[in-house]
Write a protein that binds this DNA or RNA. Sequence first.
DNA 1: TTCCATGATTGGCT
DNA 2: AGCCAATCATGGAA
Length: 383
Amino acid sequence: MAAPQRPVPPPPAPRRPAPAAPLGRDTSDVLQQIMAITDQSLDEAQARKHALNCHRMKSALFSVLCEIKGKTAMSIRQHQEEDPPDAQLLRLDSMLLAEGVSRPEKRGRGAAGTAATPEADLRVSCGGVSLLPCTRLLSHRLAHLFPPQACREFTTHVTNLLREQSRVRPVSSREMEHMVGIIHGKFSAIQRQLKQSTCEAVMTLRSRLLDARRKRRNFSKQATQVLNEYFYSHLSNPYPSEETKEELARKGGITVSQVSNWFGNKRIRYKKNSGKLQEEATMYSEKTSVATKVRGSGGQTSCQSTPSPGSCGPFPLTSGGDMVLTLRTLAFLQPPPGGAFLQPPGGVCLQPPAHSSWQRATTPQAASSPAEDSGSFNSDVSN
DNA sequence: TTCCATGATTGGCT
DNA sequence: AGCCAATCATGGAA
């Protein structure tokens, strides 16, 4: 096996008059100074830089570096004059604009008038649901993460750095252009990625909101019944406490906020249409009446939880006394259009109670506030 | 398809 | 924060 070829040693340098210091040592000194320059303080570095610039070997070293670079320079890709307009970026831009996340670029004063986007235009309508807070957040995030001047500033910084370096090492203008091109490329990649993720976030939000609307389902019969029973058995004060709401939510298999919504809607609709809902009220009253009779005749008599004193079971509506009051309140609180009070099923005509204040709009004679009743069944008893 | 019922949302009020 | 009133959007019956 042949011995590997050894590189041919460079021919011995022609003899010259001996310098003040050996050449090799001098060169390595200069190189060491260059290498160490980054570890020094600014002042030290400035001083060292000046010393290097004045060094008698500087021009020789510079030309050697140029030569080495000329031989070993990587093939710098001919940088494109100007990137063709990125279709994807344009699409993302127009989408963000449409979504209200970004604002149209203002091109001079004349265009500013048409480009100005009022708050109302930033509203992302999604079936009446506003995405504005989210788009504001995204817009802010986009501007914060990617300020428009960032690329320009960074490019200027790097160019200055290269100019500075060109005093100690060869930096061609082509190389600088190449570096600028790289920076622009990187920045537009970041920009594209950021815009894409923002678009995705907007789309996700939109679809979630649409789904939330679309997936509205009527409550189960169980839930409706539980809610209606409570409502009609507390007609004088249909404002369940937080605990009661939780209990109702648990029983109906819905959330507490759905219970709140339901009571909000129910109160308003009942007030608006109490005459029509009379039938429903009677139905639920009868249901609770039957349930009460069943329980009273040897059924459940034990109290499970008592959210309000004086009532038995999870809700006051299960008590017999409550039933009586349900019928009474029904009679009191649902005046016919003529204004006369209904006669309760028992046949006894009762006077209107003073606690029907939640219907103040329709029964102005009411005096007390819901807070005074506080969902307690005792308030019904007191009347 | 229309109409009504109903659950959810929003803005204003206290 | 809770409530009211108005409104929107969907479900479901006719």
